[in-house]
Every structure is written in C-alpha cells, then in structure tokens.
Amino acid sequence: MSDPVLSVRNLNIDYIGAETNFHAVKNVSFDIAPGEFFGLAGESGCGKSTIAFAVSRLHRPPALIRTGSEILVSGRDVLGLNDADLRKFRWREVAMVFQSAMNSLNPVLTIEAQFYDVLRAHGPISRAEARARATELLKLVDIAPERLDNYPHQCSGGMRQRIVIAICLALNPKLLIMDEPTTALDVVVQREILQRIDVLRKRLGFSVLFITHDLGLMVQVSDRIGIMLEGELVEVNDAQTIYRHPQHPYTQRLWASMPKLHGEQTRREPVL
C-alpha cells in the first residue's frame, strides 16, 4: 500500500471539566490510503465528530489533545503546525463538509462571491479566473453555472450542500472530511450527492473520511469502516466484512437492531 494520506496514531482527546475530565477519544489509531473512502460509524457521543475536528485542527477548548497523540496528513505533523501553516493546510490539504453545511454559506453573498473568497485567500487570482474555476467546480457537482449569480436562499438544500462540496474541492484537497453531510436531506438527494462524491473521488483521487450513524449507507459507499463505541475504535475492517462477518459484539448488535428493507421481518431488540 502506498503511504497513507491520513495517519492517526494513539489519539487521545479529553474534554476538560470543572471537576472531572471526559475522555472522549481513547487511543485511536487508523490510516486512510490515497483515494480511499473510509467510514467512521458510531452513535451520538462516541467521539467520531471529535476526531474529525481534531484532524482539521478545528477542535477548541475544552477539547484537549493529549501529548503522545499523532495526526499525520501526507506525512506532515498536523498537531505541530503554526497558524500560518495551518491556514495553508486547511482547504488545500484537508477540507471539511459539516452536518448542516448548507447553512454555512453566507446568506448575503452570491455563490460566485463565496468561491472567490476561498480561491483568493489561497493565492493570487483574478475575478474572471475565479469565475471560470467556479464554473468548472459547479459542473463537477451538476449545478448550472447560472447559479453563480444566485444567493443561497434561491437554491434548494441539496443544491446548497453540493455547492459547499464544490467549494471544498476548489483547492484539490487530498482529504475530504464529511461529518454527517446528508443527514438533513431526504434519501433521494442524499443518494445523488454521495453518488456524485463517489464518482469524483475516483476521478480526482482524493480520500474521504465519512462520518455517519447510518450503517447501511456507510456499507454502500465505503471501502473500509471503523466502528466507534464510547471513544474507542472497536473494529476496523473492509466494508463487506464489517457487514457480513462483524467481529465485535457491539457491531453485531448494531446490525441486529437495524430493520431491513427486504427479507424476513422479525422483532428486533434495541442494542443497549
């Protein structure tokens, strides 16, 4: 295997409290290969979003990464970056799509202005060049270039989400982190967006760290999956093995609790 795009080693993160600390991420290690679609699954509070934030250095106090933790992106130590390097690192190396990303567009700027904003911050570019690049990027996510002159409220939720993804791809990042990117959207739109991402990563070669609690969806799109339980990464394997031959009892219980779309219908009991 070629060198990983992302390498997380012995990651420990605490949330510092007045009396006690909460150990949110416990000794987590995993790698993501170039072009790989890696899924991180788990329930609310299991630490999956905390990891995503740490990878892009977006974690804020009271979250504290313990010494001895290591996050490498293309071999570079992310935790040691200074502010100037960090600014270059974000978007260019790692871009992140948040859960309600469609609400993260600025409501008073046109779509075109928001592309210009990102492109200009990362190197000299003329307005016309930026517009050309934005047109190209919108094409990637299947949105007509006329939309550049629209304001966010004129676009549907799914469209806004795709625009955010296009902005994330503006600087050809090596890793795209998506934290529950489609939870707020209906299944047809969700399917369209993820299918699009899948095609793009195969064409452009970026890796994806995909976070969701929807295990069925995760098996459909991911190459490999990590299952988190209470801050620990309890099982990592390729998607089909996680689905067909889960090893950890928690993974087995998660599958057992999921209603199926086809086949026999039996009463299912909750996991906990």
Binding site: L215, Q220, L261, H262
Partner: peptide
C-alpha cells in the same frame, strides 16, 4: 425512493439504480 434507500446489500456501483437515479 426505494432505489435511494441505504441498503448494505447493494453497492453504489450497481447500475440498476443509476438508471432510476439518472431520471430523478
């Protein structure tokens, strides 16, 4: 709607739904 429902038994590269989804 059914072709878009997440289903671990069907990988994304499966062409059958791409047909339906292409006509969204």
């Amino acid at each position: 709607l059914l072709s878009a429902v997440p289903d671990p038994d069907r990988r994304f590269d499966d062409v059958r739904f791409a047909d339906e989804l292409g006509r969204v």
